[in-house]
Amino acid sequence: MPTFDLHVPINEADIRALHIGDQVRLYGTVITARDAAHKYIMDTFIHPPAIPESERGLYEELKRLWRGGIIYHCGPVVSRDAEGRWHFVAAGPTTSIREEPYEADVIAHFGVRGVIGKGGMGPKTLAACQQHGAVYLHAVGGAATLIASAVKEVLAVFKKEEFGVPEAFWVVRVEAFPAVVTMDAHGQSLHETMLAASAQRLAKLIGRHS
C-alpha cells in the first residue's frame, strides 16, 4: 500500500487521490474535537440564526483553521511545563461513531478535509466525504505515547474550562502523524467492506448444522 504525506491545509485534489487502505502521514495544524465540542458546534454555529458575539472569535478561528483542515477525535492526557506551555503526554484516538449525527454538517460547514479517529463512521459521514471531498483517517487505537510524540506543539486551547481537558478544542501542530484512510471521497468504506467480508467468512464457519 502506498504512503502519502498530507500537509494542512489540504486541497481537494490531494484528498480525491486517496483510497481506502492508503497509509498517510499528516503534517500541520490539527484540532481535537469530541463529544462536547461537536454538540457545541452544532448548537452555536450551525443551527442558530445568529452566532452570539461572545463566540464569534472562536468561530472565525475554527473557520480559518478547518478550511482544508483536520478534526481529531481525541481526549488527550496533557501536562504543563514551568513556563506554562502545554504538552500532549498520551493522545490516541477515541471512538468516532458517537459524532456520526454531527460530522457531515461540520465537514460541509467548515470545509474540513479529514477526520481522524478510530472505529470508523456511518453512511451520513461517508456521503459527506464524497460530496465535499474529505476522508476519514483511522489512527491506531491505543498508540497514545507514539501519537503524542507526533504532536510537536500545542498552539492553543479553547473551551478548556467549560468542557474539561479531554473535551476541549486543542489546536496542535503535528509531524508525521500516522493514519490509514478507511473512508475515502469515492464512497468507499473499509469498515463496510470488512464487515461484509467477515460476515461471509463467519457464515462459512458457522453454517447450518449438516
Binding site: 481526549g75 492526557v77 503526554v89 498520551a90 490516541g92 487505537g141 491505543g142 497514545a144 505515547t145 507514539l146
Partner: peptide
C-alpha cells in the same frame, strides 16, 4: 516508547 518514558501505553 511508553516503557522508555513511563507514560501510559494507551490514554484510556
Amino acid at each position: 516508547m511508553s516503557r522508555a518514558s513511563s507514560t501510559p501505553i494507551c490514554q484510556d
